[in-house]
Design a protein around this nucleic acid. Structure first.
Lengths: 156, 156
DNA sequence: TTTTCTGCAAATGCTTTGCATGGGA
DNA sequence: TCCCATGCAAAGCATTTGCAGAAAA
């Protein structure tokens, strides 16, 4: 996990460098994305921004997300048919571990991907540019809730 | 790659076992899915079916796909915002190598996923149920087309 | 004959786009 | 002041759903 403060400063610098305007809404988004706690969805970012700026529209969220993606300052995590999740803290492809019950996403330690990509490239003849590696299952918290009869928080 | 004929027979058996009807449209779909050459999209399946049964609707394609998915006889390959691709030949999670230019999908040899999943589970405390492992890049054919000035088939 | 499947069209959910207005720099 | 960014609403796209008629078994 990178230092959110450093990430925030870098994102601001990049925006300025491209002559983009630093509106209050954008600053609020940058603050959320520089941490990317749990890897928020567009909807979650929208909710959080609206707490401070109630007139904000989804379009603005998506436009800013798109802007940052194109600058390489946000990485879009896509999987299955659910909506995307966003990572502005580590804005490059890396493995994710996703809870299928509560939706939480964490970053595991896993350094072997580069080597595996090379092996796949050699074997298939493809010129590999990036990968998507996602593990799905129950997070520790949801495992407990599923077992103990005290907390019947099933959402299924 | 499993024997398409065997896969076809198995899919037919499973449908019969669940008292589902074997309509001509479904049979045609099973034939396509048992091979799953290049891992077709819903649209591609639709086009192929329409060659033989011109009145077929997309709804029927999606309904049958959903039916087979729930029976575990078709696996849905999802990535990015593009539509899904389907695999009825190896209907379980496995790594894919995807050409970002022509869209072709192939299955690489890669047996290490089970071990990696265990390692991730131990490290994160998650109870891993399945994974998604996709490699993106240019297939050998598209690499050549991109280099030689003779074939200016760029679709970007 | 019964029940499931088909095909049409409308609905959905997430994301994108167009455009007039508003607000950074 | 000059543009870029915002916010609204409408448009897009892949996929899903509802329902009446068609056709397996």
């Amino acid at each position: 996990v990178a230092d959110p403060q450093k990430r925030l400063e870098r994102m601001i610098e990049v925006l300025k460098g491209k002559r983009c305007r630093l509106t209050p809404q954008r600053l609020a988004m940058l603050r959320i994305l520089s941490k990317s706690e749990g890897h928020p969805s567009a909807e979650q970012i929208y909710e959080q921004i609206r707490a401070d700026y109630p007139t904000t529209s989804q379009a603005t969220i998506y436009k800013t997300l798109s802007l940052l993606k194109n600058m390489g300052e946000v990485f879009e995590v896509t999987f299955a048919s659910e909506g995307s999740r966003y990572d502005g803290n580590k804005p490059y492809p890396h493995p994710h571990v996703i809870c299928t019950k509560c939706g939480q996403i964490i970053d595991p330690e896993f350094e072997a991907m580069a080597g595996i990509s090379q092996e796949i490239a050699r074997q298939t003849g493809y010129q590999i540019t990036h990968q998507q590696v996602n593990f799905f299952g129950l997070c520790p918290k949801c495992q407990k809730e599923g077992q103990s009869p005290e907390s019947p928080e099933s959402k299924e």
